[in-house]
Measured scan of single mutants.
Amino acid sequence: PDLGLTQLFADPNLIENLKKNPKTSEMMKDPQLVAKLIGYKQNPQAIGQDLFTDPRLMTIMATLMGVDL
């Protein structure tokens, strides 16, 4: 199971919303991170391994779920 990750990354406004959010806007200036996020739309399971190697993803996930870290 993808634990709902498919829906989190399926939002067509995902990148724009993250660019507008004060907690994630600075991160979204990294083209490699943006490319990763776009890739998760097609393969949400890929985030599982990346969560352990890129701490920014935890902040992004929390933001998408509405959790304040």
Rank of each mutant, 00 (worst) to 15 (best):
K19G: 04
M28K: 00
L3H: 13
K19A: 10
P1G: 12
Q45Y: 06
F52S: 09
T24W: 02
N43L: 03
L5V: 09
I38P: 01
S25L: 07
L3Y: 13
Q45H: 13
T53V: 09
M27N: 01
K19L: 10
L37C: 02
P31K: 09
P1Q: 11
Q45L: 12
T24N: 01
M28V: 04
Y40M: 10
K29T: 11
L3G: 15
E26G: 08
G4A: 14
A35Y: 05
L18K: 00
P1A: 11
P22T: 05
A46R: 11
K20Y: 07
T59R: 07
T53H: 11
A10L: 13
V67S: 13
L57A: 02
T24R: 00
A46M: 12
A35T: 10
V34G: 02
L51Q: 07
P44G: 06
E16M: 07
L33K: 00
K41A: 15
T6S: 13
Q7S: 11
L33G: 00
L69Y: 03
K20N: 14
M27D: 02
K20L: 10
D30E: 03
M28W: 01
M61H: 04
A46C: 07
T6L: 14
E26N: 08
A10H: 09
Q7N: 11
M58P: 06
I60S: 00
F52M: 13
P1M: 08
L18D: 00
L37I: 12
M27W: 08
K19S: 09
Q42T: 15
F9K: 02
P1D: 10
T24S: 03
L5R: 05
G4P: 14
I60H: 00
T59M: 11
I60L: 05
L37N: 00
K19Y: 06
F52E: 11
E26K: 07
D11P: 03
A46D: 12
I47V: 12
Q7Y: 07
G48A: 15
K23M: 11
G66A: 07
D2C: 09
I60Y: 01
P22K: 06
K20G: 10
L5Y: 12
L33A: 01
T6M: 14
R56G: 04
L5M: 12
L5E: 04
E26A: 10
I47L: 14
A62I: 12
I15Q: 01
M27E: 02
Q42I: 10
M65D: 04
V34S: 03
N17P: 01
M61P: 00
K36E: 03
L69I: 15
A35K: 11
L33D: 00
L37D: 00
D68C: 03
I38F: 05
K41R: 13
P12I: 07
T63S: 08
S25M: 11
M61F: 11
F9I: 05
D11G: 04
A46P: 04
L14C: 05
L18I: 03
V34M: 06
Q7V: 10
S25A: 14
